[in-house]
Amino acid sequence: MTPALDTLNSVRRDQALAALSPLVERSPWVAEDVVDQRPFASDAAIAEALVEVILAATPEQRLALFQVHPELSGREAAEGRMTAESTSEQGRLGLTRLPPLEAQQLKTMNAAYRARFGHPFIIALHRVPDRETLFTTFERRLNATPLEELTTTLAEIASVIRSRCRNAFGAATEDTSTLNSET
């Protein structure tokens, strides 16, 4: 076990919640549902427990979880109101300092996506190699059916959670849960 995982497994419940909550974007109820499953054997075990809570959630709970995600290069980014995790993930692709044409294109795509699906576009940015791939994927997903997009969004959230768990608590793990997707 890693030192961070050992610590998570041994600290008080409120401290463990504070460590787990940032793994799922502004949805502490997910961490609440898994914190008492400690001790966790690995970062992958934490990720899978969090993902299982989301899969078992009601459609309304999932929609609420989707809706708290920040838009890519959106108002929350401009105002510095994103979580540290989202700021880092978006910053890696330069989404916090886009050229004006790309910024406008992303703003238009964000609005179209939200109008079509009722929540921000969610993608596991750690798997996106560059902005061109991001824009291509965004355009493709704008044309998905609501069911296809629900499935993809859940898979993307699962991938984000796994990445955040690896970064916070562990060694590299394989992305092997039931929520894999090719994006």
Rank of each mutant, 00 (worst) to 15 (best):
L5G: 01
L5T: 00
L8W: 02
L8S: 00
N9R: 03
S10K: 06
D14F: 07
A16D: 08
A18I: 05
L20Y: 09
L23E: 14
L23D: 13
E25G: 03
P28N: 03
E32R: 10
D33M: 13
V34H: 05
Q37T: 07
P39T: 07
A41I: 04
A44E: 09
A45Q: 05
I46N: 00
E48Q: 13
E48A: 05
A49L: 00
L50F: 07
V51Y: 01
E52M: 09
L55M: 11
A56D: 15
A57C: 07
T58S: 15
T58C: 01
T58N: 05
P59L: 06
Q61W: 03
F66W: 10
V68F: 01
E71T: 07
L72Y: 02
S73R: 01
A78Q: 11
R81N: 11
E85N: 07
E85G: 05
S88W: 11
L93G: 00
L93E: 00
G94P: 04
R97K: 10
P100G: 10
P100R: 12
A103Y: 06
A103E: 15
Q104K: 14
M109P: 07
R114I: 10
R116S: 10
F117G: 08
P120A: 03
I122S: 01
I123N: 06
H126Q: 13
V128T: 12
P129A: 11
T133I: 09
T136C: 12
L142V: 02
N143K: 12
N143A: 13
A144Q: 14
T145C: 05
P146Y: 06
P146W: 04
L147G: 05
T151D: 14
T153L: 09
A155T: 04
E156M: 12
E156V: 04
I157P: 03
A158Y: 02
S159M: 11
R162Y: 15
S163M: 09
N167L: 13
N167H: 13
F169T: 03
G170D: 09
T173P: 00
T176I: 09
L179K: 07
L179V: 04
